[in-house]
């Protein structure tokens, strides 16, 4: 199959992803508590990792894929730090 069909399809589904990211960032900016904000950042980052893989296929540059693994792993670390702080009111020790 011609690869330009895949590229045209990705161009058409790109605005849906962008609107979803804008809504995630709005919830992350105005969330009433810290937990809402961290949950919104969490969901946004996992979707952003998927979006980066899709863009690396669209740009036809496979070397860009290493960034998505790093993003998905370190956002989990942020999640655990904030949960530990909320539960015990301290980090480390």
């Amino acid at each position: 199959m011609d690869f330009s069909i895949v590229q045209t399809f990705i161009i058409y589904i790109l605005p849906v992803y962008v609107v979803a990211f804008v809504l995630y960032v709005i919830r992350a900016l105005k969330g009433p508590t810290i937990s809402d904000q961290v949950l919104a950042i969490d969901a946004m980052s996992y979707d952003l990792a998927a979006f980066l893989v899709i863009l690396s296929i669209f740009f036809r540059e496979p070397i860009l894929i290493g960034t998505a693994i790093v993003l998905a792993l370190w956002i989990y670390a942020l999640d655990i730090y904030i949960a530990k702080y909320l539960e015990k009111k301290e980090v480390g020790e």
Binding site: I34, Q37, I41, L48
Partner: peptide, 12 residues
């Protein structure tokens, strides 16, 4: 703590 979370949004 909320300022740290806003900084994480900016970093992402």
């Amino acid at each position: 703590v909320r300022a740290v979370v806003f900084s994480a949004i900016q970093s992402t």
